[in-house]
Amino acid sequence: MAQVPSRTTRVWTIPNLLSMARLAGVPLFLWLVLGPEADAWALALLMLSGITDYLDGYLARKLDQRSTLGEILDPVADRLYILAVVVGLALRDIIPWWFAVILPARDALLWCLVPFLRRKGYSSLPVHFLGKAATFNLLYAFPLILLGDGEGIVADLARTFGWAFAIWGIGLYWWAGLLYAWQVYRLHGDADRQGPRVE
């Protein structure tokens, strides 16, 4: 039988510190984009966020520092970065407002499903591969779209590849959201038949 990865209640782990640093970068990114419009620094911050997003998961596994807090911080940091970026870029007229609305709308749908999970005794749903793939695409798309807000061949290429990643990311993001909704529906039916359990 496969061994279940251990989780700890520790707060001050290396992966958690990386996630906290990513969270602290959210308001900094918004200030850089909307205040001085320091796009080079905002771009560097986005790239650093993508690196730390990979590192916190890798180090949690490598150092056996998986934690309950980390399972919350990592997706929250991802969602807040996505929200901050789409709002910041929309306010700068770099992306259209429909783009800025369609991503948070998916998260709002999933938040509406949380009470159904809680009522049946479930704490959360496992992270799906599609959700990770969507986040990966979006975290690549945003720096490229920001870099594409300029003139020249580099900006043109960045804009083209950025929107390619963005379109794939939006599609996968909503596909994953619908799969999560389907899981909640199935769990709701299973719980009615078997009784509640906490994961």
Rank of each mutant, 00 (worst) to 15 (best):
A42C: 11
A84F: 00
V114L: 07
Y173F: 09
L83E: 06
A90N: 05
A105R: 07
R61S: 03
P15C: 03
W163A: 01
S123V: 11
L34G: 06
A77W: 04
R119I: 08
L28S: 09
I94Q: 01
R79D: 09
P5Q: 00
G169R: 02
R66T: 09
I153G: 00
L28K: 10
W174A: 01
I153N: 00
A77N: 08
I145N: 02
S6A: 14
P104I: 14
A158P: 00
G25I: 14
E199V: 10
Y185R: 02
R22M: 10
R92G: 09
W174E: 12
A24T: 10
A108W: 09
A44Y: 03
L125D: 10
D149Q: 13
F129M: 12
R193T: 05
D39S: 12
I94G: 02
M20A: 10
P196G: 10
S123F: 03
D190T: 13
M1W: 11
C112L: 15
P36M: 06
V4T: 12
K132H: 11
R7G: 00
L89H: 09
A40V: 08
L18N: 05
W175F: 13
A141D: 05
G70F: 00
V198N: 10
L18S: 10
L80A: 09
G50D: 12
L83A: 09
S123H: 04
Y173G: 13
G131A: 07
D192H: 14
R193D: 08
V87S: 00
A21I: 12
R106C: 03
T160S: 07
L55M: 14
P36H: 07
F161N: 07
